[in-house]
């Protein structure tokens, strides 16, 4: 598993440039441009199960959801950051992408450290040292457990409107 580490205020233009935002919406269109202006090797290097570590305010800027959709589609297992911008936080939850807010774990990481997430325990281990993170509110867990907002909403629509 590779850990990609980035700094503070990684904005949506760096994650997915605005110039593609109205022509690329599907995962296969998004992937070649993912993180293009931040880390041009990311798209070719990333493998399912990899993780991103970042500083504060990850995902700030536009409401475009391609960063969240793209990171989920390439199989990023979690983004661990000091904090997330609020629209990105919703967008990621709605795509079923796991976000973990844990400043201490981000600070502790040194290249080469093994990073292990234990969702059940609410704990992240970085190079053998464990850090706790707060659990998601139940509303968001329900969305993630359903695989994202669309499947979640479909389940509920089916139940309430019986189609």
């Amino acid at each position: 598993m590779t850990v990609f580490k980035y700094g503070d205020d990684i904005n949506t233009d760096l994650l997915f440039p605005g110039r593609y935002t109205y022509t690329c919406g599907k995962a296969e269109e998004i992937l070649p441009h993912l993180l293009e202006d931040l880390d041009k090797d990311f798209a070719s290097k990333v493998k399912p199960g990899d993780m991103i570590l970042a500083g504060k305010n990850f995902g700030c800027g536009s409401s475009r959801e391609q960063p969240a959709l793209g990171l989920k589609a390439v199989g990023i297992s979690a983004v661990v950051a000091k904090s997330f911008a609020r629209i990105f936080f919703r967008a990621a939850t709605n795509q079923g992408l796991l976000l973990v807010e844990c400043p201490a774990a981000v600070d502790a990481y040194a290249p080469g450290d093994e990073v292990v997430l234990d969702l059940g325990k609410g704990q992240i281990t970085v190079g053998g040292r464990a850090y706790a993170f707060p659990p998601l509110p139940p509303e968001m867990l329900a969305i993630r457990d359903a695989g994202g907002l669309l499947p979640y909403a479909r389940q509920r629509l089916k139940a309430t409107r019986g189609q």
Partner: peptide, 20 residues
């Protein structure tokens, strides 16, 4: 306030969402 596309899509169907 702003939301993402997927949430907008679901709002078209349900008219409802959550806010903190």
């Amino acid at each position: 306030t702003g939301i993402d596309r997927t949430e907008a899509a679901v709002l078209l169907l349900t008219g409802e969402t959550w806010l903190r």
